[in-house]
Design a protein around this nucleic acid. Structure first.
Length: 471
RNA sequence: GGCCCUAUCGUCUAACGGUUAGGACAUCGGCUUUUCAAGCCGGUAAUCCGGGUUCGAUUCCCGGUAGGGUCACCA
């Protein structure tokens, strides 16, 4: 029988998880679901100094919004509960004890100042700082008040396989006596995640490429513990939109819930995130969540960093808006509209003009929609098309009114208005001589939807009255 | 500085050594009912450089260069 695939996402509650980290969660989720496996949410709250109140809820809300649902986690429990590292201290102590007994862990005898001194010296000599070069000859007894360090057994080069990057290796410089348990009793990430992954049966560790250089450390710990490491799948970095820097909160990496507030669809965000560093191998770019789960494959994750691209995200989101069923589209758009603009006929006009629902807010503040519910104000001069005269314009408009008058109110559709107006316009030297003043009289805007749509939405009476007024 | 990773249009990327180097976003031009949007059609645009290996390198190897990561009692 095949081994069950178990993946996890393990954020620390130090604020919101930005969109870059969220991709890691997504890939781990997709891989688990594709293999009918388990996706675990584990909270790495071992740094009490950096912990931000409310983060855990915020993180869970973010994942839920995106549609990344966990099978085991702090809120729903699971066979390996608890899923908060701060509640798993006994486990770490147990394994720390094992390492101490093997002679592979020892209390750090130095003060922080002394270590800073070592570090500065290394920097001055342009060398990497290695604690093991200062390893004490004899180890004291660990009383829990000193940091507990791991003693690297074999100082050697490590070679390992990564599911994404292939065969990797690093020299002995990558190995060091890192801290297992801090002086406050909490484990470090380096230690805790290894123990948790072991106890939770995690088969694939997916994480950002910033952890590659630490892998030899983990490998040496697995060796010391005498356990087989899980498979590693390292993800390429996501770069910020302007620089080549890794995407971080400083350079604009946003909270996903910020995108929710801007009116992006979660499916579109998932789609976009999936494509940032992964591709299906063909030209398809728009996927439903199920399609993504079905087609996702670790082997097609790229190796190089991808730049965040809002344009592409907007395009994908628009594709998602186009796919929305009428009723859902209407509901979504109405959420952003004031009462007087909740006009059914307006929905398609707005829909084709936005790439995210937040754009509606902009349309409203810039007055682009006002004319749909109130008589616009405009200048007389602009009513006249290019070289025509006021007299000619008003003559054309009168002809239009007469023709439109003949359409029955209930037949005042886009098509009928268009046929009627076009018939007159085609008889003129330039169609604009009629179409421009009509459009302008109805909207009062330099840029607006076409006159037929506007007329259809306003209805026969309002349309005629505005044209009359223009004359 | 040590160690590590990466390198195809502006951006995301495709191309199990043999392609007119493909697609998408963006951009530019045209068309479609005057403006805007949408849509359709079309254009511009890339294998970082230098050596090998090979009949043949975007592809494999080496070296440069450039970018990124890491060297915490952070994860």
């Amino acid at each position: 029988m095949e081994q069950k695939i178990i993946t996890r996402f393990a954020p620390s509650p130090t604020g919101f998880i930005h969109v870059g980290n969220l991709r890691t969660a997504l890939y781990a989720y997709l891989w688990a679901k594709k293999n009918k496996g388990t996706f675990i949410l584990r909270i790495e709250d071992t740094d009490k100094a950096r912990e931000v109140e409310g983060s855990i809820d915020h993180i869970m809300k973010s994942l839920k919004w995106l549609g990344v649902n966990w099978d085991e986690g702090p809120d729903i429990g699971g066979p390996n509960a608890p899923y908060l590292q701060s509640q798993r201290l006994e486990s770490y102590k147990k394994y720390a004890q094992i390492l101490i007994e093997k002679g592979l862990a020892y209390p750090d005898p130095y003060t922080e100042e002394e270590i800073d001194g070592f570090r500065e010296k290394a920097e001055l000599e342009k060398k990497a700082f290695l604690f093991r070069e200062h390893r004490p000859i004899t180890f004291g007894v660990w009383d829990g008040t000193r940091p507990l360090r791991f003693k690297v057994g074999d100082i050697k080069s490590y070679h390992w396989h990564d599911e994404v990057y292939g065969d990797l290796s690093a020299g002995p410089e990558a190995l060091d006596d890192f801290i297992l348990i801090k002086s406050d009793g909490y484990p470090t990430y380096n230690f805790a995640h290894v123990i948790d992954d072991l106890e939770m049966g995690v088969t694939h560790v997916m994480r950002g490429q910033e952890f590659i250089s630490s892998v030899p450390k983990y490998l040496s710990l697995y060796d010391g513990l005498g356990i087989k490491p899980p498979l590693f799948a390292t993800l390429p970095p996501i770069m910020g939109k302007d620089g080549n820097k890794k995407l971080g909160k400083r350079d604009g990496a946003k909270d996903v819930l910020e995108y929710e507030r801007e009116g992006y669809l979660p499916g579109a965000m998932m789609n976009f995130l999936a494509l940032l560093g992964w591709n299906p191998g063909d030209d398809k770019e728009i996927f439903t969540k199920d399609e993504l789960i079905n087609i996702f494959d670790i082997s097609r994750i790229g190796h190089s960093g991808a730049q965040w691209n809002d344009d592409k995200l907007d395009w994908i989101n628009k594709e998602y808006i186009k796919k929305l069923e009428n009723e859902e589209l209407e509901n979504k758009i109405f959420e952003w509209l004031p009462e007087e603009l909740k006009i059914k006929k307006l929905v398609p006009v707005i829909a084709e003009r936005i790439s995210k629902f937040g754009d509606i807010k902009k349309m409203i503040t810039e007055g682009e929609l006002d004319f749909f519910y109130k008589q616009p104000e405009y200048s007389k001069e602009k009513l006249i098309f290019k070289n025509t005269t006021p007299e000619k314009t008003s003559l054309n408009l009168k002809e239009a009114i007469t023709a439109l008058q003949k359409i029955d109110e209930k037949d005042f559709s886009f098509e009928n208005v268009k046929i009627t107006l076009m018939q007159i316009a085609d008889g003129l030297p330039s169609r604009g001589e009629l179409l421009h003043p009509v459009r302008y009289a109805l909207s009062g805007l330099d840029k607006s939807p076409d006159p037929f749509v506007i007329a259809m939405i306003l209805g026969k009476n309002e349309t005629l009255s505005r044209l009359q007024k223009a004359i």
